[in-house]
């Protein structure tokens, strides 16, 4: 906790996620190389870079889908490398996927409900017995799920199978589902992909709203510069797995390395 106190004394928020010298290689390809990232509490950080820069791979490292070849990853001051994805979610990291991965056959309601797994008290026995405690808990969950669906304007789709939702709504549902795990850090992988300009503006409002209402940190991967520049106070730029820049939107935009990486694409 020493490092946290140190950062606090410098007037910054406590460290939530900390990647130190993270490298991952797939055979001969170094997808992420010696990456150092620090994300504080209630911070909204952008992660950008050209195609194949390694952004999604960073998400997969943080969420335990891949283990780094070298380096360490800490969350709330504890090492999380080697833990299963569901254990990392339990610690408070939730994500969405670049190629939407909802539970297609489950209804909109059940997609969110399934994400309550970490916070329910009942298990096999209570589900079979269906006593008063079980019924009360299920009613509580129903209330919470519907509240979330209504906040995110998905209430009317409650019983619709997730796979038949319109595209933009699927993206929103994926965010709601991730929030249902009650994360401290939310990882969004290109949430604006495939959205029209109006939807993008709504999405920006939504992300700001989430940050304020749930007081969580967000790490946002996004190709749409307007979206990233519009809502992130700090942006990290990756190219070929290497961090080439970090700073405010203005700093990043003016950085010659960044311009080169995007133009030389």
């Amino acid at each position: 906790m020493a490092s946290q106190n140190e950062t606090n004394s410098r007037g910054m928020s406590a460290t939530l996620l900390n990647l130190e010298h993270c490298t991952i290689r797939f055979g001969g390809l170094t997808a992420v190389s010696d990456l150092n990232v620090r994300i504080g509490e209630n911070e909204l950080v952008g992660l950008i870079g050209p195609n194949g820069a390694g952004k999604t791979t960073v998400f997969n490292l943080v969420t335990g889908v891949y283990e780094p070849t070298e380096g360490r990853i800490q969350f709330s001051g504890e090492d999380i490398v080697g833990e299963a994805p569901f254990e990392i979610t339990k610690r408070g990291i939730a994500r969405t996927f670049q190629n939407i991965r909802l539970f297609p056959s489950l209804s909109v309601y059940d997609n969110v409900r399934a994400a309550f797994r970490l916070h329910i008290k009942h298990g096999v026995v209570q589900a079979m017995w269906r006593g008063g405690g079980f019924v009360a808990e299920e009613q509580g969950i129903e209330g919470q799920v519907m509240e979330m669906l209504d906040i995110f304007k998905l209430g009317k789709f409650r019983d619709v199978p997730a796979k038949s939702l319109p595209y933009g709504d699927q993206r929103r549902l994926e965010i709601v589902r991730a929030l249902a795990t009650r994360p401290k850090l939310l990882l969004l992988d290109e949430p604006a992909a495939g959205m029209n300009p109006t939807e993008k503006v709504d999405l920006m409002k939504l992300i700001r709203f989430i940050e304020e209402k749930y007081r969580i940190s967000v790490l946002l991967v996004e190709h749409d510069m307007q979206v990233v520049m519009g809502i992130c106070r700090r942006i990290i730029v990756l190219d070929h797995g290497v961090q080439i820049a970090e700073g405010t939107p203005e700093q990043v935009r003016a950085n010659p390395k960044v311009i080169e990486a995007y133009l030389g694409q």
Partner: peptide, 11 residues
């Protein structure tokens, strides 16, 4: 439906 997504939701 989706094992990867299920794990990511804490299952």
């Amino acid at each position: 439906d989706d094992e990867v997504a299920a794990e990511a939701m804490g299952i």
